[in-house]
Design a protein around this nucleic acid. Sequence first.
DNA 1: AGACATTACATGCGTACGCATCTAATGTCT
DNA 2: AGACATTAGATGCGTACGCATGTAATGTCT
Lengths: 131, 131
Amino acid sequence: MPLTPDGDLCERWRQLMARYHDVSCALERALSQQHELGVSEFETLDLLVKSPYGKQFVHELHAGIHLSQSALSRTVARLEKRGLVTRAMCTNDRRAVSVTPTEEGRRLHAEAAPTHAAVLADHLGELQPQA
Amino acid sequence: MPLTPDGDLCERWRQLMARYHDVSCALERALSQQHELGVSEFETLDLLVKSPYGKQFVHELHAGIHLSQSALSRTVARLEKRGLVTRAMCTNDRRAVSVTPTEEGRRLHAEAAPTHAAVLADHLGELQPQA
DNA sequence: AGACATTACATGCGTACGCATCTAATGTCT
DNA sequence: AGACATTAGATGCGTACGCATGTAATGTCT
């Protein structure tokens, strides 16, 4: 017999959706209102800032984020347009594009990170982990 | 001290996102390929079929689904266009619109429900509940 | 080396979304 | 009753998304 009886699966899914949308909407609102950043943009910036060498290839970012390849490509393009990252062709593999946060990008990330953390604390904080 | 130390919140959020996107994408694919239904459309239909009187007002649906009011309005419009539900003005409160699934709507829901359940079982089944 | 597959990323396209706003109906307060 | 607020739902608008495809570079196989 399964860990969770079949009838509960739907309920589990509903709760997962509810939690996800709650947090996701709150993040979207807070980040975009206070820092003009979307969730995808913040996540991308976050991955970059926290990456070991301070830069990542687009396909490396793709492995760490829940976006289609095309959506990621455009997210990076948006970030570049705003001067938050730079794109550079890789010399070894000229198909690959490495993405590096600019000073401004790091500054904005540092500014937005507390907002991000606060929202998570608000909406994920007192809950016991369960979905 | 909180149930979950602060540093873990980000990790919790990442896992929640991962789980949500995994299930959500799988549902979207399965439902749209096999039944030409989006997740929002299925959820709406599901609420209707399972509602006590077999019909709901739009604002009642809104309370049970994670969609903005405008998105819900359009989802219902899409369902009506495909002949899966009918919209009717309420006589008591002429602002309200009640939504009723048609025979075809019920049939399609019955057809899609097992697909829905199977995807949930696949993607949520063996996991211990946790986010 | 040449043919074919694969990988990395960009882009055209259609669609569903949220926000803001609009209209109409109902509720409230004096 | 008349003025103002609120509620229900529809719609204009801009945007981010995924899918399919395009382009270029790299890998593989004979």
